[in-house]
Each structure stands twice: as C-alpha cells, then as structure tokens.
C-alpha cells in the first residue's frame, strides 16, 4: 500500500490546514477512515472531524495543491493528489485529458479546425444577427457622425450648380422607385461634396447617405451615374458598411471569448488586424453591389453598360481619374467580367 497506516488503522494525507475565516497556517494531516475523516494537528490533537460524505473535495487542476473543505469551513491543502484520488475516488476525466500527451496534438488540430469553422460560419451568423439587432436610429446617427467627420477632414461644401444637382437627384429618384418596396428600411439620400483629392468618386454610409463628389457629378454621364449610385445603394441595401464594422469587432470578441486574455501587444494587433482582415470581404461586397446597381439602373431605364464604359475611362493610366472611384472600389477586372456576364443575361 502506498499510504501511511496510522495506529488507528486509518490512512493519513499530509498537508496544511487553515481554520475557518482565519489565515493561521497549521501543518496537519487528514486521517481517512471507512466513512469518517479527522484533521489532526502536529500535537496529535483532532482539529475537526466530519463524515466522508460531507467533505467537499475540489477537482484537480494540474499540480496545484488540492483543496479539501470540511463542513465547519476548515480548509485543508495537499499536493498528495494520487493518495486523495485513490482514497476518496475523485479522479476526473477532465484532468486526464489535460495532461501533456500526444493526444493533445489531436486536440490542437481539432481546435484549429474549429477556429476556422467559427471564423467562416460562426462569425457570419453573428454579424447577421448584429446587423438585424442594430436599431435604425443608431445607424442614422452613424451617418451623421461619419459625414461630420468627413467634412472636418477631407471634404468641402459642393460647388456644383443647382441644375446639375437637380438632374442627379432625378436619376436618384428613378433608381429609388425601382427598389423593392419591402426594403424601405433605409433612408436613402444624396449628399454632394467637393473632395478635390478623391477624384470622381462616390461613397455609401451605412444609414443610406450616398456621397457624390463634384468631380464625379461633372464628368460622368447620366447612365454612368445611375450605375455608380445604384452600386452605392447596393452597399446600403446589403448592409455592407455595418457588416464590415461588425466583422472586425465580432472577430475580436470571439477571440477574446474563446481564447481569453491574449496579452498586451497581441490585443492591439488583433483589434487592428481584424479591421484589415475584414476588408477581404470587400471584394465580395463590390461584386454584390455591382449586380444590384446594374439590375437597378437597367430597371430604371438606364444603360447598365455605361458603368463598364465608366470603368474603362477610369482605367486609363494617364488619367487623373485613376485615383478615383476604382482605387477605393477594388477588384475591377473581376467586376468587369461579372458585369459583362450580367449584361449577357439581360
């Protein structure tokens, strides 16, 4: 027998004890009988005793000292794990699993696979739920906030004459008439801004505000404008802006929930890195918005090919326009193929 048998015929476990609500440390041993335990101090006096069933034994956690709590609140600590488990029958499968063993390689592989699945499917589900849960007024407030900060940093009031503005608003109205009446949740509106460094460009904010730069308004044909504005409306309808924000935040929340604390530098890197990773979804979003925009402008009676021509006009390397819409709307070769395909279908 690996245990020390005392004169009373019980088995003793060496350790240290603390009386209830006290920090007084006492070298002590726990004598375990048939259905009774005794806590005995170095002077061989019984500190406390209890029925075996009334003793609370905490599950094992690595090599950390085992905690045994007696009914009166006395705490007994011991590192004689095997003796405790043999005597009191407290071996747990969780601890067995956690031990350093080749099996952990399989666990690690399962984790990597699981993490990939969470990233691919779990995050998308979470993002959709978050988009659905976001209150309309909050999204509108986001638009106002983003517009205000753009006005501070990079845009000036529009210098466009009112006639041209009215023409573009008319195109916008035609497009909006074609939008599925069931998708009236968005408050689409146009904002004209003079943004000299952005070239011919347009942006969609999550709540439905579409910013058109003066350069775009002046240079693009009505058909091309319908295509571009339709494309931006596609971003709004598909909640692309919100989805990208949530994807970057959601990735961070998921990681911190599953992995726990990641350490000081990694935390910063993850928060920023998720933002960059979330951009890989922008390509899919661009294709979706193109399809939406081309269909919409076709339905509204505009020529969807105009967007393709507009692409080509921007794609000329010697033109200033190359730093405009295309540079902030990536993946245009793929998108041109997609548009041509759409064209064939229509």
């Amino acid at each position: 027998m690996p245990f020390i048998r005392s004169s009373q015929g019980s088995i003793s476990i060496q350790g240290r004890a603390y009386p209830p609500l006290s920090s007084r440390e006492i070298r002590a041993r726990l004598a375990v009988g048939q259905d009774q335990v005794w806590l005995i101090d170095p002077g061989q006096r019984i500190m406390t005793q209890a029925g075996l069933m009334d003793v609370k034994i905490e599950p094992r956690l690595g090599q950390a000292e085992r905690r045994i709590i007696l009914p009166d609140g006395t705490l007994f600590l011991t590192d004689a794990h095997d003796t405790v488990d043999d005597l009191l029958g407290t071996r747990t499968s969780l601890h067995g699993f956690e031990q350093f063993h080749p099996r952990l390689i399989a666990v690690a592989l399962a984790c990597i696979l699981g993490a990939w699945a969470v990233w691919k499917y779990g995050l998308s589900a979470l993002v959709h739920m978050a988009v659905w849960l976001t209150p309309g007024p909050v999204v509108s407030a986001m638009d106002q906030g983003m517009l205000a900060s753009m006005d501070r940093v990079m845009s000036e009031p529009s210098q466009l004459d009112l006639d041209r503005q009215a023409e573009i608003l008319k195109i916008f109205d035609h497009l909006q008439e074609q939008i599925d009446p069931q998708d009236q949740s968005h408050d689409y509106r146009i904002a004209f801004r003079h943004m000299p460094r952005m070239g011919p460009n347009a942006f969609a904010l999550p709540g439905g505000t579409i910013i058109v730069t003066d350069t775009l308004a002046e240079t693009a044909s009505a058909d091309a404008l319908a295509g571009v504005i339709g494309h931006e409306m596609g971003h709004v309808a598909g909640h692309h802006g919100l989805k990208q924000v949530y994807r970057s935040v959601g990735g961070y929340v998921l990681i911190s929930m599953l992995v726990g604390d990641t350490g000081p530098m990694l935390e910063d890197a993850l928060l920023q890195g998720n933002l960059i990773l979330s951009l890989s979804y922008s390509r899919t979003h661009e294709l979706q918005a193109d399809t939406f925009g081309a269909t919409l402008s076709h339905q509204a009676g505009y020529d969807p090919d105009a967007l393709l021509d507009f692409f080509d006009s921007l794609d000329l390397p010697e033109q200033d326009g190359a730093s405009g819409w295309l540079s902030t709307h990536p993946g245009f070769e793929e998108r041109k193929r997609n548009l041509r395909l759409l064209d064939d279908l229509q």
């Binding site: 690595g62 090599q63 956690e98 350093f100 952990l104 984790c111 699981g114 993490a115 969470v118 599953l258």
Partner: peptide, 16 residues
C-alpha cells in the same frame, strides 16, 4: 507545459 493542456482542452470544449 501543464497550462497548455488546460488551455487547449478549454478551447476545444468552448468551440464544441
């Protein structure tokens, strides 16, 4: 070494 086992099992059970 010991914490690795605890951590990776935690992670797997959390995912599952």
């Amino acid at each position: 070494r010991e914490f690795f086992g605890i951590w990776i099992v935690n992670l797997l059970l959390s995912i599952l």
